[in-house]
Design a protein around this nucleic acid. Structure first.
Length: 254
DNA sequence: ATGCCTCAGCTCCTGAGA
């Protein structure tokens, strides 16, 4: 079984690439972030024809998430229960016995800003909810665009970007608090070359120079860690003519 | 210090992303 996450930066623009990628990588579950479209514009028919069921939670202009799956999704939850939020960032469902949470974490823009404070509040609420979900569902995966690096190994220029957005101590402490719930960074369960990233800036030839960050993560519970056999980042779509700035991350389970 | 690209929208500039 394979599960994947991909921030596609506009489904309107990237639908053909998503379909092309699914044809070449027929994963069982794909979590999408940054749909940037309203629910009435979601291309459900195209995914059905590709063999995927879809759950979606859209929003005009910004955010928006979806869960594509080959088999039905049950007990669907939108956003974090009990956390009032006008932004569409979380979609959760049980698929093939696995509690799957797809999330687009807030960017935070700049430490000290209102958006950064929102990011911290959102992370607090997410953690409390995920703790409860884990208690009810031993097989759980939390995947998406976290907009946080774990450590310097996830950053192309750790010194130049020290304590900047995605790299602050506050954000990394929040990420470790999720780990402390009993989750594991699937990427780090396996060996990877140094400077393996999931996002590259569109500017300054970021991808060509591998000036990137690893901010797209798949976190798994103990029960899923025991089943994990690979976790890879697929750089191929970043080489497309009109790419997303993010690459898909793929988890393989036995 | 800023823009570099890309996308959406109160669209031919601006805000936001990361």
């Amino acid at each position: 079984m394979k599960l994947a996450t991909w921030n596609i930066n506009s489904l309107n623009v990237r639908l053909p690439q998503v379909l092309e990628w699914l044809a070449a990588n027929p994963v069982d579950v794909l979590a999408l972030q940054e749909l940037k479209l309203t629910d009435d514009k979601f291309p459900a028919q195209a995914f059905t024809e590709a063999g995927y069921q879809a759950q979606w939670f859209g929003q005009k202009t910004y955010n928006g998430v979806a869960l594509l799956s080959k088999t039905p999704a049950a007990d669907v939850v939108r956003n974090i229960p009990g956390f009032a939020d006008e932004q569409s960032r979380v979609l959760c469902a049980t698929i093939e016995g696995i509690r799957v949470i797809g999330a687009y974490f807030p960017n935070g823009q700049e430490p000290g800003s209102d958006k950064f404070a929102y990011k911290m509040r959102w992370l607090d609420a997410l953690r409390d909810w995920v703790r409860a979900e884990m208690a009810a569902h031993p097989q759980l995966v939390l995947m998406g665009d976290y907009n946080i690096t774990f450590d310097d190994a996830d950053v192309w220029d750790p010194d130049g970007l020290r304590e900047t957005i995605h790299c602050t101590t506050e954000e990394r402490t929040q990420l470790q608090a999720l780990i402390a719930l009993g989750l594991h960074d699937a990427h780090r369960l396996f060996e990877h070359p140094p400077k393996t990233f999931s996002w590259w800036d569109y500017r300054m030839l970021g991808f060509q120079k591998n000036r990137g960050l690893r901010i797209d993560h798949i976190l798994v519970s103990d029960a899923l860690k025991a089943r994990a056999s690979a976790c890879t980042i697929d750089r191929a779509p970043r080489k497309n003519k009109q790419p997303s700035d993010h690459a898909p991350v793929v988890l393989t389970l036995d």
